[in-house]
């Protein structure tokens, strides 16, 4: 059985398979990569890191996009 781990995404508790990459997390959440930025433990991740960086237990992930604002 694949082991899972807890991470925090946008302030919410999530269970993901161990070894999940940022790109895989986005797929799991059904979020397109085009207009999002991902911050991992307060560090913005370049797009190149999405497939390389695997998540660790207790990682704090922020996934943001653009919305209307003044």
């Amino acid at each position: 059985m694949e082991s899972s781990m807890r991470i925090t995404v946008n302030g919410q508790d999530f269970a993901v398979p161990a070894g999940t990459t940022i790109a895989e997390l986005l797929v799991q959440l059904d979020i397109a990569q085009t207009a999002v930025a991902v911050e991992l433990n307060l560090e913005v991740q370049p797009k190149t890191a999405f497939t390389e960086r695997t998540l660790h237990p207790d990682d704090r992930v922020e996934i943001v996009t653009l919305v209307g604002g003044g």
């Binding site: 995404v9 946008n10 302030g11 919410q12 959440l29 059904d30 979020i31 397109a32 207009a35 999002v36 930025a37 922020e62 996934i63 943001v64 996009t65 653009l66 919305v67 209307g68 604002g69 003044g70």
Partner: peptide, 30 residues
């Protein structure tokens, strides 16, 4: 100008504002 907010995790069906901006000729000011 445009704002940065958390992506919705449970409702990805929402329309994106970028589809309504002429990005070829508009400079965004985040």
């Amino acid at each position: 100008t445009i704002a940065v907010r958390r992506e919705k995790l449970h409702d990805s069906s929402g329309r994106n504002i970028l589809d309504y901006l002429d990005l070829e000729r508009t400079i965004l000011l985040p």
